[in-house]
């Protein structure tokens, strides 16, 4: 599986309150949430993001609340992958559980700039920067987490296990 798109780049500690502010949490409709994704740090994001685009951020992406609305908003906005140096742990679980691809890769975050066109190969963990002609190698997921990903998230995995 591959993803390709243009990069939106952010710094460290992008928190769930800016990914999707609580004032919009009176609904859990993904398309409604997508309209306000990143609004408080990047007001035009929801308008300009295109299907397949990629978010690249520094450390501790998704810190704060447990709201699954955050990865849902990002996924529903069309983002195909989030790459960061590290993810906050609840965001990490939530992304895996709902099937939003994420990758931890420090060199990629250091090398990639906003607006770069990049391609991500989920099976090998190779991230290619087409704009700069560079490649970076992301950490592979542990086998157990790969099983959840293969089942398209925790619900699929749980269903299979309960049968």
């Amino acid at each position: 599986m591959k993803a390709a798109g243009k990069v939106f780049k952010y710094g460290s500690n992008v928190d769930t309150d800016v990914i999707i502010p609580a004032r919009y949490l009176n609904t859990s409709d993904p398309s409604e949430l997508a309209k306000h994704c990143m609004e408080d740090i990047d007001a035009s994001f929801a308008e300009v993001v295109k299907q397949g685009d990629i978010i690249v951020a520094d450390k501790n992406f998704g810190c704060g609340s447990s709201r699954e609305h955050a990865p849902l908003a990002i996924k529903s906005a069309g983002v195909s992958c989030v790459i960061a140096k590290t993810f906050a742990r609840i965001f990490y679980r939530n992304a895996i559980n709902i099937g939003l691809p994420i990758m931890e890769c420090e060199p990629a975050v250091d090398g990639i700039e906003a607006g770069d066109q990049i391609e991500v190969d989920f099976s090998t963990g190779v991230i290619s920067n087409r704009t700069k002609g560079e490649t970076y190698q992301a950490e592979p997921f542990p086998a157990f987490i790969q099983k959840i990903i293969a089942a398209e998230g925790l619900v699929g995995y749980t269903r299979k296990h309960m049968e």
Binding site: E68, R93, N94, I98, V155, M162
Partner: peptide
């Protein structure tokens, strides 16, 4: 510990959760 909604759903169904 805090988890997300999907973990909560699986927890309500199975009484279990995975952790590192």
């Amino acid at each position: 510990t805090g988890i997300g909604s999907t973990d909560m759903a699986a927890g309500m169904a199975t009484g279990k959760a995975w952790f590192k």
